[in-house]
């Protein structure tokens, strides 16, 4: 039976930020967030995969082309002593985000790692007025797709769905089961 409209639009936050759940969400709300989680997970996982299987890939030139006040940081990351580690960590983090989000396990950790990565990408080539936005296909003012995806990951962090659709359900079996609301 359908709930009243106000129940669809609001939910009660239980406890602290850390043990936030989507238990009180309508199943459609959860499905929508789950869908977003899967899409972002897919995106990260594929980015990780093409890099894992391409031994020549390196973030060096992306880092060296960084602009804005963060340029020294990225130039340092691209230095010969660091770049191998930076490349490895980038692929590892992309894979962690992709796998946790797609599988629905530790996805809150994955979401935080993803936010960190996306903010790094954002600040390497921020959508600031005057900065050249090489490699982007649209028009952006302050906000670009990296920032939007980071915001989406923040929603995923706040609204975990792995217990309803994902491996985490096996850790808390009651959650996996079909909910009636």
């Amino acid at each position: 039976m359908s709930p009243p409209l106000h129940c669809l639009l609001t939910f009660e936050i239980k406890g602290s930020l850390l043990d936030m759940t989507t238990d009180n969400f309508h199943s459609n709300q959860r499905s929508a967030i789950t869908l977003m989680r899967l899409l972002i997970g897919w995106h990260f996982l594929y980015e990780a995969a093409v890099k894992i299987f391409n031994p020549n890939w390196t973030a060096k030139f992306y880092l060296l082309s960084a602009e804005s006040f963060t340029k020294p940081l990225f130039t340092w990351l691209a230095s010969d002593g660091l770049i191998t580690t930076v490349d490895f960590m980038n692929i590892l983090c992309l894979a962690i985000v992709g796998i946790t989000l797609v599988l629905g396990v530790f996805e809150r950790l994955g979401a935080l790692v993803g936010i960190a990565l996306l903010l790094l990408y954002y600040f390497a080539h921020p959508a600031f007025p005057g900065a050249s936005q090489a490699g982007t296909e649209g028009s952006y003012f302050l906000i670009n797709k990296n920032l939007i995806e980071a915001a989406a990951l923040y929603v995923i962090y706040l609204c975990p769905t792995g217990q309803y659709f994902g491996l985490r359900g096996f850790m808390s079996p009651a959650s996996l089961k079909t909910s009636s609301n």
């Binding site: 990780a48 995969a49 599988l103």
Partner: peptide
């Protein structure tokens, strides 16, 4: 308290997706 097929599918749905995406990445590379 038993697992239905549907529950299992919802829990494991991501696993083949991970495999498919990794395969696609490997194929592209």
């Amino acid at each position: 308290g038993k697992w239905s097929r549907r529950d299992m599918m919802k829990g494991l749905a991501g696993v083949p997706v991970v495999g498919a995406v990794l395969w696609a990445g490997a194929a592209k590379a």
